[in-house]
Structures are given as structure tokens and as C-alpha cells.
């Protein structure tokens, strides 16, 4: 079996994983993605991940699942353990981008988060699935209890910052930008990468 690592990632992490592969010159690491909209139906994630793992396991010496729990209530972790593959620690990407410890310590309750992915895909992954394109009157039913939109920025990108700011205005929320970089994703992937060559 070739000494290669496969990363099976949520589509919302595609750019970020590719950026880290390039930055670190992890040539033995390949990426496939599952559709990002699975995060709206987390009950479907464990089966989708399992199918991808089973499909790839004889072609790679190591597989890493670039998902956090993502609302599966521990079921994805259980499935990964059964398949003997590792995954990212933490509840969701907002948490691991900031760093799971820092995110938990902040104890923020009334913030709605965007990542680079969501700032870029706000229309397709927030507005449309929540039906706000057709029913803008639902906005306050969804977001009435929120105070601010926090843009957790993975990169320095003026355009995305402006997009995130516009998203906040559209949702009627205050705006804050926090630069996080890739957070815990860096260490998680570096760990997988180094283990192959142990």
C-alpha cells in the first residue's frame, strides 16, 4: 500500500485543508470532501463518513477525518473509533478554528459565527437553507436572541471581511472580526502528517 494519507473533510474545510497541505508541503496527503451541507443534517454525517472511509481504506495507509462532532452528539466519534480512524477534537469548526480551549473559555452564548467559508457562502449556506431569501420575515425568529455576528477569520482578506460585515447588517447584528488562522486544525493535520513517517 502506498504511504499516503487521505483526509476526508467537510466541504466547508476544503480550502483550509488544501492551504495547509500546500503551506507545509505535505505531498503524501490527499483530500476528498463530503458535501458541506451535511452540517445541516448531522444525523447523516456518520454514515457518509463511514462510506468514504470504507471506499478509501485499501488505497491509503492512513485516513484522517477532518470533522469535529458537528452536532452528531458523539455518534461520529463512536463511528470513527469503530473504523479506527482519527478525527478532529471539539464540538464544531467554530470552536477548533478559535482553538477548542479558548472557545470554551470565552463562554459566549449570543454570538453567531461565520468562518471564511461561511462568509464566502453566506447566501448558499445560511440565507437559502433558512428560507430567508423567500421569507425575510423569519429573520428575527432565527436571530432575535443573538447580539453579534463574530467573523472568525482564517485568512486576511478584505473582501471576506466586508462580506461578513454585510451579513451582520443583514441579520441585524453587531459585527466583530476575530483573526483565528487555522487554529487546532494545524496541529491535528501536522500530527497525522508526522505519524505516517514515524
Amino acid at each position: 500500500m502506498p504511504d499516503k494519507t487521505l483526509v476526508i473533510a467537510c466541504g466547508a474545510l476544503a480550502r483550509e485543508v488544501l492551504a495547509l497541505i500546500e503551506l507545509n508541503n505535505w505531498q503524501h496527503m490527499e483530500l476528498i470532501c463530503l458535501p458541506a451541507d451535511l452540517h445541516l443534517r448531522p444525523d447523516k454525517i456518520p454514515d457518509a463518513v463511514e462510506a468514504a472511509v470504507l471506499d478509501a481504506c485499501d488505497k491509503y495507509s492512513r485516513i484522517f477525518v477532518a470533522y469535529a462532532d458537528c452536532g452528531t452528539g458523539g455518534l461520529l466519534a463512536a463511528r470513527c473509533a469503530a473504523l479506527e480512524v482519527e478525527m478532529i477534537k471539539g464540538p464544531h469548526c467554530y470552536s477548533f478554528f478559535e482553538g477548542n480551549e479558548a472557545f470554551a473559555a470565552r463562554g459566549e452564548v449570543t454570538s453567531f459565527y461565520l468562518t471564511d467559508f461561511l462568509a464566502r457562502q453566506f447566501e448558499a449556506f445560511v440565507i437559502k437553507p433558512m428560507g430567508l431569501d423567500k421569507h425575510p420575515e423569519l429573520r428575527d425568529i432565527y436571530f432575535g436572541n443573538y447580539e453579534k455576528l463574530v467573523y472568525l477569520a482564517q485568512t486576511e482578506d478584505e473582501g471576506l471581511t466586508r462580506a461578513a460585515e454585510a451579513a451582520a447588517a443583514r441579520l441585524g447584528l453587531d459585527f466583530e472580526r476575530r483573526f483565528t488562522g487555522y487554529g487546532d486544525l494545524v496541529a491535528a493535520l501536522a500530527d497525522v502528517s508526522s505519524q505516517v513517517y514515524k
Binding site: P129, G131, L132, H135, L138
Partner: peptide
């Protein structure tokens, strides 16, 4: 059963 999603339920 996944035929309706959140906005339809809200309406």
C-alpha cells in the same frame, strides 16, 4: 423524513 426543512416547519 427530510421532506421538509426548518423554514417550512417555522411557517
Amino acid at each position: 423524513d427530510g421532506i421538509l426543512f426548518v423554514p417550512e416547519v417555522l411557517l
